Computed example of a mutant assay.
Amino acid sequence: MSIACLIHGALDLRLEQETPAPLGPHDVLLRLGAGGICGSDLHYYQHGRVGAFVVREPLVPGHEASGIVDAVGAEVTRVKPGQKVAINPSHPCGRCDYCHEGRGNLCRQMFFLGSASVFPHAQGMFRERFVMGERQLTPVLESEITLGEIACAEPLSIGLHAIQRAGPVLGETVLVTGGGTIGCMSVIAARLAGAAQVIVCDINDRALAMARTVGADRTIRSDQVGAAEFADVAHVSIEAAGSPAALATCLSATRRGGRIIQVGTLPPELSFPANSLMARELDYRGAFRAHLEFDWAVQAIRSRRVDVRPLISAQLPLERSKEAFELALDRTRSTKVQLVSPTQPEQHR
C-alpha cells in the first residue's frame, strides 16, 4: 500500500491508501521523486474544476513530476531499476489527424495525467508509487541533476512551446505578463531563443524578483505605472497571468505587426477589442500544453543550459499535501511548491 493525494471536490483534499496497478510487459513501477503543484491543480483544489473540466470522481492531481524506477515489466528496455526519470504527462493517441500533423498536444483523444477533462478521470502523480508506460519516461543519468529539477521539465516545456508558437524572437523584445512559474519559464525560453530584451510585469514584488533571477532584463509593477509605460514596446507579448488586465497590457504593449501568445487561462466571458487586432495587424495565437518541447526541456535541464532551481520554493512530503497546496496559493511566499515521496531519502532539490 502507498499514500495518494486525492481531490474529492472544492477544498476537499484527502490522503488515502491505495495499491499500485499490476505491471504489464511495457510498464514501470515508479516512486515519486518530486511533483510540482501547478495552477490547474490549484484550481481543482479551490474550485473543484478548471474551466469546463469538473471533478466528477476523486481525482489524483499532479502532472509535473519526476520518479525513481522501482520495478520494470518483462519487456521494458528504456529504463532500469534505480534510475531517475522525467515523466511526460501527455498521452496522445498517435493516430488522429492532429497527431499525424505533428501537433500531438491537440490530439483528439488526449489522455493528460491529473486532469478531469475525461471521464473516468486521468489520474495524476501525487502518489507515493504509481505505474507508467515506459514510453512516457526519459532516464536522467546525470547524478548532479536533482529530482526537483527534473520535475520542472513539464512547466519548462510550456514556456518553450509558447516561444515556439511565437516564431523567431532572435534580437526582439519579448514582454511576459505574469511572473509565476510559467511566466518565468517563458523568460528562460525567450532567452534560449535569442531575445534581445525580456520584460516582465506583475503586481507581486516576489514574482518580479524571481523573474529577474531567471533572466528578465526589466521588471515592472504593472499596477503602479500608467498605460504609456507599456505602449508599443514589444515584438512579442506572452500572456502568462490568466488575467484580463494582463491581456489588456499585451494588446497595448505589442508593436504593430507583432504577436500575442495566450498561455494563461482567461475567464470564459471576456470583452475583447478585436478591432485593435485588425487595425494594428496583430497576430493572436494560443499555446496549449506542449508536444516535442517536453524532450527539449528535459535535455536543457540535464545539460544545465537552464537552471530551474531558483524557482523551487519548497518541497513537502505527501503527508503534508494540504499544507503544500495552501503554500502554493500564497504568491507572496512561493513560486513552485513540490510534493516529495515520504520514503525518498535522496536530496530532491
Rank of each mutant, 00 (worst) to 15 (best):
L13I: 14
P20Q: 15
I37F: 04
R49G: 07
R49W: 01
L59E: 11
S66I: 09
G67A: 11
V69Q: 08
V72Q: 02
A74M: 02
I87K: 06
S90K: 02
R95H: 14
Y98W: 12
L106C: 10
C107L: 02
M110N: 04
S115L: 00
V118F: 08
H121Y: 05
G124F: 01
R127F: 00
R129S: 12
F130Q: 03
E134I: 02
Q136W: 10
Q136V: 00
A151D: 06
A153Q: 06
A153P: 08
S157T: 04
A162E: 04
I163R: 07
I163H: 09
V169F: 06
G171K: 06
A196F: 05
I199C: 05
I203L: 11
N204D: 13
R206I: 01
A216T: 01
A216H: 01
S222W: 04
Q224Y: 05
A227I: 15
D232L: 01
S237A: 15
A246N: 01
A248N: 13
T249Q: 11
L251P: 11
S252D: 10
A253I: 02
I261S: 06
V263P: 06
L266N: 10
S271I: 05
F272D: 14
R280Y: 15
R285H: 04
A290I: 00
H291V: 01
L292T: 13
F294D: 03
W296E: 12
A297H: 07
R305L: 12
L311N: 12
P317N: 02
E319C: 03
K322T: 05
L329N: 12
V340L: 01
Q347R: 11
H348C: 14
